[in-house]
Design a protein around this nucleic acid. Structure first.
Lengths: 346, 346
DNA sequence: GAAATCTCCGAAAACGATTTCGAAAATAAC
DNA sequence: GTTATTTTCGAAATCGTTTTCGGAGATTTC
């Protein structure tokens, strides 16, 4: 292990005072350009960089932000989140902040993860996703006054910064597209409605039905887990109805994947016989059978933007002006069914 | 923001000395059970927990370990790594260590990420994956004497701890299975051979050929990028040969996905006409067309185990006894082709 | 050329914990 | 009851940095 040098030693070698060296390195005023240069060069030469422990102690800032992976993400599943992480990291790389991640184990202990993060580890800020309509995490963080930004909005508490990829437009436009193709009974496979994205998806779905003056049938929407298995089971349930849907809108590509499987099980062709649309543009979507029509989800960009919003927030900007809702775009492949009616989307 | 209390204030309220409180909290000897209990209760009551900044400064340990995501992982792709991360986090959750992750941007700046992590951020240890035959990261970390454990072995430097999911057996058993079905020209779609996993895969492939007394044809192995597109292009190249392979072994399920696409493009049926086997048990494998035969990759468990190895290493155990090679298991679905010869795997 | 004003630099005080080492109190030994 | 030994506690040093504030020395102003 190479010998490490501290600021006092560096000052000694330079014949300067510690304070001067510190100011030079942190570019605070009160030090001439000449000595600043001299210090910087020496720091480079001797491989000095301030020990974060000392700095943190003095400045009372950890220069870390915490990210909590929500419980249902455990085990495989969503490339989505990896992409989000990469975006966040990308954004953070321009700042002095470090990203520390922890995975919430279960829904019950999830808040505990937040507490550990802010009360023990003392991160400067927090990020998370999978917001819920009523979200205890939002309440907790606002109560303790810790800066945070979420992926997704919520109905909880005072305004907070977020980036939200709007599931309403996915629900509305997807459903409307089916309507345009002449479908009158459209199934919706969604994750539980307490999740914000699911709630919004269902809202969009209803809005599209209403616009088309179609009745809402509660039996046509089933809430499942956000994975292939959920899609499989949910679609089986829909298809077993006496009056089954003729098209299925899904809250996620993984759900759509399972749904197409279920459709194939009944001897019908997913896409051609029963069209399906998913959400979030899973990378393997184009390789499914048939290739999956879906809605875009620029997760990487969202992550990067979340960092910007967080920085702005910590810089004193008002949360209200730090809320962004992004519209996903329809990505047409072929699972959405025939080209009967060409362009009829809302 | 709730008022935070420090150890001095807690000691004052208890009528004890700071040192006593500290010892009680860290369970160092030299303090009676009675006062220890008293201190612990008071800490709980007043919501005190030691400021990590102070502790780190004094103990000269950061209690963080860094994980570097390798560059090619950027943008979507591998659920693999998320799973690994979850495993690592799971393992770490029993320890005082925090996980901080950074994403190496490009191969050139990757070492820079390591340097920042150990020289500036001063993590106590490091983890990474995607080892290479000649791996500068290994060299750097060993040189600086920082504890680390890798996912995958390497040919670089002195022994170090790792968990390796053995690609040799995937290459050998996959190829052997094709041989058992009577194939004599077997294609191999691998990632570049400087990656350890690819090198091992190719070794396994050659071993199987040798065992079956089949000639090795360099034209039959093509190195591509580790994603769907790589598989697509690689398989196109193989199929365009004057004497194309009749079966294709792939270094990853994503590659296999692209390969099956390429096969379908030529009007042949992947699986039935040209069988394909992948690696790493991608969660969507069962939903591909046809369902993908692959090799298991218990990434979550590997992550958890890596943490245990790391802890053992930091506890003074010799690196040599902290190396584990796990054999992946064949997961039969149907893309490996006909049941011509029933059970003929090695 | 003296006074006023700027520029730089340095001494010392935090920040909050852990750890060493010596002292006091409690217990044991005789 | 005195001494020896063990147990329990406390004072102070230390980790490495940033920041405040005062004081030289250089520069300008009249």
């Amino acid at each position: 292990m190479k010998q490490r040098i501290n600021i006092a030693e560096l000052a000694r070698r330079l014949g300067l005072a510690v304070s001067t060296v510190s100011k030079a390195i942190n570019d605070r005023g009160d030090v001439s350009d000449a000595t600043k240069r001299r210090v910087l060069e020496a720091a480079e030469k001797f491989g000095f960089s301030p020990d974060p422990a000392g700095r943190r102690l003095r400045t009372q800032t950890s220069e870390t932000i915490g990210f909590v992976l929500s419980p249902p993400q455990t085990h495989f599943a969503h490339p989505f989140f990896l992409d989000l992480l990469m975006g966040i990291d990308q954004g953070l790389s321009q700042t002095p902040f470090q990203l520390i991640i922890v995975a919430g184990r279960t829904l019950e202990t999830e808040l505990e993860s937040f507490r550990r993060l802010v009360e023990r580890q003392r991160v400067d800020a927090v990020m998370f996703g999978r917001t819920r309509r009523d979200d205890p995490r939002v309440r907790y963080l606002q109560e303790r006054n810790v800066p945070f930004v979420a992926l997704g909005r919520s109905e909880t508490g005072k305004p907070f910064p977020f980036v939200d990829i709007d599931r309403t437009v996915a629900g509305r436009n997807g459903t409307a597209r089916f309507v345009g193709f002449g479908h009158r009974r459209i199934g919706l496979l969604s994750t539980p409605g307490y999740l914000m994205i699911s709630h919004l998806l269902q809202e969009g779905y209803r809005a599209a039905l209403k616009a088309a003056k179609l009745p809402f049938d509660a039996d046509l929407v089933v809430e499942t887990s956000n994975d292939e298995e959920g899609g499989l089971n949910g679609a089986r349930q829909l298809l077993a109805m006496s009056n089954p849907p003729t098209a299925i809108m899904c809250g996620h590509d993984l759900i759509a994947t399972g749904a197409m499987q279920a459709i194939a099980e009944t001897g019908r062709r997913p896409g051609a016989d029963i069209p399906v649309i998913g959400c979030d543009n899973h990378p393997l979507g184009p390789y499914l059978n048939p290739p999956l029509t879906t809605f875009s989800a620029p997760t990487f960009e969202a992550g990067r933007r979340m960092v910007e919003l967080l920085l702005a927030l910590m810089d004193g900007r008002s949360p209200k002006e730090l809320q962004e809702i992004w519209s996903p775009e329809l990505i047409l492949r072929s699972s959405h069914g025939g080209q009967l009616v060409a362009a009829n989307e809302v």
